[in-house]
């Protein structure tokens, strides 16, 4: 089953929410729509779900045009941030609701609900009402409810954002496992790059209603195409060409990037050489398993990351080394 978005545009009044968005995804992929708030990722998910209509562009699933089909006839599963369980139904009734609407036989519904309850390990809570469940449990029920109808597409709208850190990590693993087991094409909206890196087969990174870059988590992290993606996917040092030419000319050896491109170097790719000179440690932050250093170099500041505890203290004079293969030239926008 392949989902294809062709040049989707959506306006809210005078504000462009989506500006010519196109991409394709196919089962059993897990795709994350990633970006800061207001980038259009939730709008895009709602368009895919059929909860709103694009102003122009087409939406195809398995070659069939979905644009005019209302949400209830698309046969998708959806999970929202706010759980959104039906408060008047038990856990089992919530999970079985989609099947009931489709007129499935009660015995079949019961069987399917039983399987899913086992899968999310909540069989003992089948007759409880949503308000008697914790946030994590509610979200697992919501997930089971969404997949109960064998959806052609599973849509997740920031499903982990309302949960506290520990439950979030737990459920993150469960979502990935469930998705792999069922092999459903899944599209998840998130603003958390760590979540996207961990869950996604492919990330669609969005900015101002447009796609900034599409790629695997590795591609987006190590080979960002523009300054926005470089910045959004973790911490990066962005150096303009004049500075590079003066202080680290070897990075320009063999490549001629366009004039406006800047060098993107990840903090963990910078090597500190205590035996050399030319740079000075200004600040040291201890982050548990990592140390993050602010180093004055080339008239600016570099962020450098070392594994474990560092022996360097502020004021220490050091040298730094950046290898050319760790340098990515990115466009300024």
């Amino acid at each position: 089953m392949q989902l294809e978005l062709q040049n989707i545009t959506k306006m809210f009044g005078n504000v462009v929410a989506l500006d010519g968005v196109s991409f394709t995804a196919a089962a059993p992929e897990f795709v994350c729509l990633l970006g800061p708030s207001g980038c259009g990722k939730t709008t895009l998910l709602r368009l895919i779900a059929g909860l709103s209509q694009p102003d122009s562009g087409r939406l195809l699933l398995g070659g069939e045009d979905l644009t005019r089909i209302p949400a209830r006839n698309r046969g998708f599963g959806i999970v929202f941030q706010a759980y959104s369980l039906f408060p008047n139904m038990t856990v089992a009734a919530n999970i079985g609701y989609g099947l009931k609407i489709r007129g499935a036989a009660p015995a079949n519904i019961k069987k399917r609900v039983g399987e899913l309850l086992d899968l999310i390990r909540l069989s003992h809570l089948a007759d409880r009402y949503p308000y008697q469940l914790s946030g994590g449990q509610q979200q697992r029920v919501a997930l089971a409810r969404a997949v109960a109808v064998d959806p052609k597409l599973l849509l997740l709208d920031e499903p982990l954002s309302a949960l506290d850190a520990k439950v979030r990590t737990e459920l993150r693993g469960e979502i990935r496992e469930l998705q792999k087991r069922l092999g459903i094409l899944t599209i998840m909206v998130t603003h958390d790059q760590e979540e996207a890196l961990m869950l996604a087969d492919r990330i669609v990174c969005m900015q101002h209603g447009r796609i900034a870059q599409v790629g695997t988590p590795d591609e987006l992290y190590t080979r960002p195409q523009n300054r926005f993606v470089a910045d959004f996917m973790g911490v990066s040092n962005l150096l303009d060409q004049a500075l590079v030419r003066e202080w680290a000319a070897h990075l320009l050896g063999g490549v001629t990037p366009p004039d406006d491109h800047v060098a993107c170097i990840r903090p963990e790719d910078i090597v500190i050489r205590p035996d050399l000179r030319g740079a000075r440690v200004r600040e040291v932050q201890f982050l548990g398993n990592l140390s993050r250093l602010q180093i004055e170099w080339g008239g600016g500041m570099l962020v450098v990351q070392e594994t474990g505890r560092t022996t360097l203290t502020p004021g220490a004079e050091v040298g730094i080394h950046i290898s050319a293969e760790n340098c990515t030239w990115v466009s300024p926008q």
Binding site: F76, S84, F86, Y97, G98, A142
Partner: peptide, 25 residues
């Protein structure tokens, strides 16, 4: 909550059904 209606819609509930099963309760 609007997401309650939207969830029911995605699950395939028609407007009358949505009213009976979700909104009225």
């Amino acid at each position: 909550p609007p997401t309650l209606e939207e969830t029911a819609s995605c699950l395939g509930a028609s407007q009358p059904r949505l009213l009976r099963d979700v909104i009225v309760p």
